[in-house]
Design a binder for these strands. Structure first.
Lengths: 195, 195, 195, 195
DNA sequence: TATGAATGAGGATTCATTCAT
DNA sequence: AATGAATGAATCCTCATTCAT
């Protein structure tokens, strides 16, 4: 029969991350002020600084938490043979990662210019480059290389571009994955047929 | 018998647009201050206000100038039959538009969060939606609808994602277009085969 | 019959310098906020930033204006022979410099810890070192070297320590100079007598 | 049979004083934050508040501990005749006091502007004034009064100004004292000779 | 066609301090 | 004897914008 505590417990740090990500995704990083974040949480700006050293730090901490699956994916992929099957599986898992932290990836896509100057910018760019490297084969024809790259970025784009289109979300997601996998498959088939 | 003018003549307005776009594309809209633009041009901030009513106005004017080809494309497409051939041509022309104002489209892509709040945001979004509507057939299977949409966005993504990859720019551009057209074609073939 | 202008003319920059120096000297650099300076001038903080890039910049500009005589003195001294007569004249001129910008030098003395971190810190330290170098002879006995150095610093200290003591300011100033010159003279006499 | 305690025992209060003085002397009072002090000690800011009521309180407590010798000196001097010999001894003892808490006196000298607003400011100023009163004779000529005052302040200045000069520290200290005593002596001789 | 001078609103950040535990 | 969490007030500084000249 404990009374509801008047002051929030030890979850403030996490609540900051949640609210911040939400606002960052909604309005952009620059347009979201710490005042705004603080107000949403009913704390003072200074409280944010108790938990994070800078505004950028909030974003970094969020990124660290949410980009983990992509790291795992890259690490896993590095142990696999560079076959078509592996690549299809990479895309499948990437789809999971993307949809598992949609808000965050939406933020990253819509704030590229801003993020580029931030420390997570390089980090992220290199992850995407790593994934791209795992899919693309330098020996392929230019067109097929584009197919591999397009497989990756179609998923990014698909995630948001399809938001406005009616239809069951899961079905859409499956369709996007299918198209991406189709591109990779086509690239490989193409190369096998025409040496 | 006029002496050569020491200072640039009536081209200031245009020079503002050029410098602004360059800086917007490089650093993002928010991170680019009017002071910075003015300094690059060796004029005062106040001079910018003689030519444009607001910061946003500079961007709007740039957008008006550069987005024209896309408007033309949409207008033209409206007069054409919704055939595969038309759609392939739409993509081809869109490729021209994109590469013809690469800086601007790069800006739009990397500053989506910011642009969304600006008046050109809606404008632009509706143009993309219009293009997408010209390519996508609501009657198609979800997968094929995704293919149509992916054709469009692959070009956006391709434009920048391929920057880091070695190879002749023109060849890359052709390859990107080919992949995009391939997607549309595949969507149509698919639908024709499996009614 | 022109009416008194409502807005101050072009003297704002200078008025900022004056007020700033006054407040810096009175309360110290850190304790003086830009808000305070602005209020004293009946302008906005932002106005200060129109004229100076940073708070430190205000101080730098003041220092540049007021430390000129010391530079002149050093330059002049460099062209003179290192005789006792020269040194006595250095002290005399230094007295002029000090009393000519008393507020500023008082500030420098009372804010050493702060000034040390600022860019003018090094600048100033090196000037004092230069002066000291012009007065001190490394070949002298330690005691006489101290006399030379004390001649310099007695003037600094005297300037303020004597403020509380009754008496005609000009007479005090003359007495301080005399004591300083006496120290230098004694150092030289001493060295001549005991080789 | 007590185990060696892992954490420092009851000496925290003293450690705070030590670290605080060190940082105050190094960076100045205002530039030294309680966070910084706490970090150097590996405790929380709140811990400082267990031992001291305010930031100023830390400084006050340090001053109380370190200024004792000067109080003793003043008390002792009050019981002595105002002879030249007494004054020379005052300077000698003052030299001891100064060198015995060099960090603290350096702090006081370099932070005059700040200290002036603090409660120890008045305290300290009055001590120096008391010392000065013990050395200076209002009946002396202005020049000789300046000599007396200069004797006192030369020691302050000497302490730090001579830091950059090569030579044995003890020898320097002795030389500084000698010069100071010389000034007092000269003042007295002068007065005796020219009544 | 521009500038010089200024403003008002707001930004991120830091600080000394408090208090329940 | 000390901490974790938080606050309120202040800091420096930047920005888009205005307007008389």
């Amino acid at each position: 029969m404990m009374a509801t505590p008047q002051v929030r417990r030890g979850d403030t740090r996490q609540r900051i991350q949640e609210v911040a990500l939400e606002l960052f995704a909604e309005q952009g990083y620059e347009k979201t002020s710490l005042r705004e974040i603080a107000e949403h949480l009913d704390v003072t700006k200074a409280a944010l600084y108790y938990h994070f050293k800078t505004k950028e730090d909030i974003l970094i901490s969020v990124a660290k938490d949410l980009a983990g699956p992509v790291d795992d994916l890259i690490a896993w992929a590095a142990t696999q043979p560079r076959t078509l099957a592996t690549k299809r599986e990479i895309l499948r898992r990437y789809s999971d990662a993307l949809w598992g932290a949609a808000n965050f990836f939406r933020f990253m896509q819509e704030n590229q210019a801003t993020v580029r100057e931030l420390s997570i910018g390089e980090t992220f760019k290199s992850k995407i480059a790593a994934l791209n490297g795992l899919l693309r084969e330098p020996g392929f024809s230019m067109t097929d290389q584009v197919r591999c790259t397009a497989a990756l970025f179609s998923m990014h784009a698909g995630m948001f571009a399809m938001q406005n289109i009616e239809g069951d979300p899961e079905e859409k997601r499956a369709a996007i994955l299918e198209v991406a996998q189709g591109l990779i498959t086509e690239a490989h088939r193409d190369q096998t047929e025409t040496p």
